[in-house]
Design a protein around this nucleic acid. Structure first.
Lengths: 120, 120
DNA sequence: GTTACTGTAGTAATACAATAATACAGTTAG
DNA sequence: CTAACTGTATTATTGTATTACTACAGTAAC
């Protein structure tokens, strides 16, 4: 997995999203152990504290659970991770469309811009 | 103009964007006076300080200029406002596409989601 | 049992955006 | 001239995210 973090955006949600993608895509499966808080922190070049916060959030949503002193593990409810992702995609799309409309663009124009988009 | 501010996002850039849209769309024209810092602050329900900051940023980019004690005015260079908007649209589209790709979606899937998007 | 890992918890420091309140100086209209 | 509006500037405070550091307790392997 690529633990690439965009430091211009909030880090904690990015970690949550990355874990959910790994679970939804089958990259990691129920019962499997996650990388430790300190490992992820090192890979993503962030503070263990921030990773811990993200893990706790996912735990509260039922996506993962912890065994004290042992590690973090993927829960059986991979459907939750998928739901979170779907919801995330919908929310971010809504935000994007709203912003584009505040710039005076309608849906057709937006799609046209995306189709013609060249990646740098 | 609708001075609707999304308080979940940073306010200062939203004010800058709104002014640029007003200029690019011809809603306000070169030489015309803008609403005062205090007026905008009241309409948008934010602090005059924040509006001031946004105006100064636009001034540094050459979009507007101030006459002390009198007010803020639209500069002749409406092309700058248009450029800023184009750049903004491109940047936000790039961010959106990058995020969607980190969720495992390709361009075709993204367009499909947008086409089927229902506004709430 | 010791060692090295793990989760867990807390504090302090930093950075940033925004708020709040105030004051000063220039302008414009009456 | 005066009053009411402007822009401008400063300071203090809040809220949030993140970092940095430290400490404690449970687990697992040797």
């Amino acid at each position: 997995m690529d633990w690439q973090i965009d430091k211009n955006r909030s880090i904690c949600p990015q970690i949550c999203d990355t874990i959910c993608v790994m679970i939804a895509s089958g990259d990691i499966t129920p019962g499997e152990r996650l990388m430790s808080v300190r490992e992820v922190a090192a890979k993503a070049d962030v503070t263990p504290n921030t990773v811990q916060k993200a893990y706790v959030q996912l735990e509260q949503q039922g996506v993962i659970f912890s065994k004290r002193g042992s590690g973090w593990y993927v829960s059986d409810r991979i459907d939750i991770a998928k739901d979170i992702l779907d919801q995330m995609i919908h929310a971010k799309t809504a935000d994007y469309l709203n912003e584009m409309q505040s710039f005076g663009l309608d849906k057709k124009e937006i799609i046209s811009i995306i189709k013609g988009f060249r990646y740098s």
